[in-house]
Amino acid sequence: MNFLGIVFGGAVVLALLALWVYALVSAIQNERLDSARRLAWVLVILLVNGLGALLYLLIAPNRPSAEEIRLAAALRRRDALQRVMRRA
């Protein structure tokens, strides 16, 4: 194997390791998961390695729900209105 192949292979391994660590930390800190689902995802990531990390990142509930988006928008509108009222 030549030097370029070793460097490329090492880069791929480091990228997969980074993806795996990111998925594991994300699963542990994900507030949208209850404790049983969090434990299940951590076990899947640990036991199935790269595939488990990829599955977690693709299908786990990481994105805000529509209700959370509406609530955040309402809070931003309220805050903007309060700033306008303070200036008046």
Score class of each variant (00 low, 15 high):
residue 1 M to Y: 03
residue 2 N to V: 02
residue 2 N to M: 03
residue 3 F to H: 13
residue 4 L to S: 13
residue 4 L to D: 15
residue 5 G to E: 14
residue 9 G to C: 04
residue 9 G to L: 05
residue 10 G to V: 00
residue 10 G to C: 03
residue 14 L to Q: 11
residue 15 A to W: 05
residue 16 L to T: 04
residue 16 L to Q: 14
residue 17 L to W: 13
residue 19 L to T: 11
residue 19 L to S: 09
residue 20 W to G: 04
residue 20 W to D: 09
residue 21 V to L: 09
residue 21 V to P: 00
residue 22 Y to M: 09
residue 23 A to S: 07
residue 23 A to R: 00
residue 24 L to I: 00
residue 24 L to H: 03
residue 25 V to T: 06
residue 25 V to Q: 08
residue 27 A to P: 01
residue 28 I to Q: 13
residue 31 E to P: 06
residue 32 R to E: 00
residue 33 L to S: 11
residue 34 D to L: 06
residue 35 S to R: 09
residue 36 A to I: 10
residue 38 R to L: 07
residue 38 R to S: 04
residue 39 L to T: 13
residue 39 L to C: 09
residue 39 L to F: 08
residue 42 V to M: 12
residue 42 V to T: 14
residue 43 L to M: 09
residue 43 L to V: 04
residue 44 V to A: 12
residue 45 I to W: 00
residue 45 I to G: 02
residue 46 L to C: 11
residue 47 L to F: 10
residue 47 L to P: 00
residue 48 V to S: 13
residue 49 N to G: 08
residue 51 L to W: 14
residue 52 G to I: 00
residue 52 G to K: 01
residue 52 G to M: 00
residue 52 G to T: 01
residue 54 L to D: 01
residue 56 Y to D: 07
residue 56 Y to W: 08
residue 58 L to C: 14
residue 58 L to A: 14
residue 59 I to P: 00
residue 60 A to H: 01
residue 60 A to S: 10
residue 62 N to L: 15
residue 63 R to E: 15
residue 63 R to V: 13
residue 64 P to L: 08
residue 65 S to P: 07
residue 67 E to N: 11
residue 67 E to P: 02
residue 68 E to T: 05
residue 68 E to N: 08
residue 68 E to F: 03
residue 69 I to A: 15
residue 69 I to E: 15
residue 69 I to T: 15
residue 69 I to V: 15
residue 70 R to M: 13
residue 71 L to M: 12
residue 73 A to S: 05
residue 73 A to G: 03
residue 73 A to K: 07
residue 75 L to H: 09
residue 77 R to Q: 10
residue 79 D to F: 03
residue 80 A to L: 04
residue 82 Q to R: 10
residue 82 Q to D: 08
residue 82 Q to M: 10
residue 83 R to I: 01
residue 84 V to H: 02
residue 85 M to Y: 01
residue 86 R to Q: 13
residue 87 R to C: 04
residue 87 R to M: 08
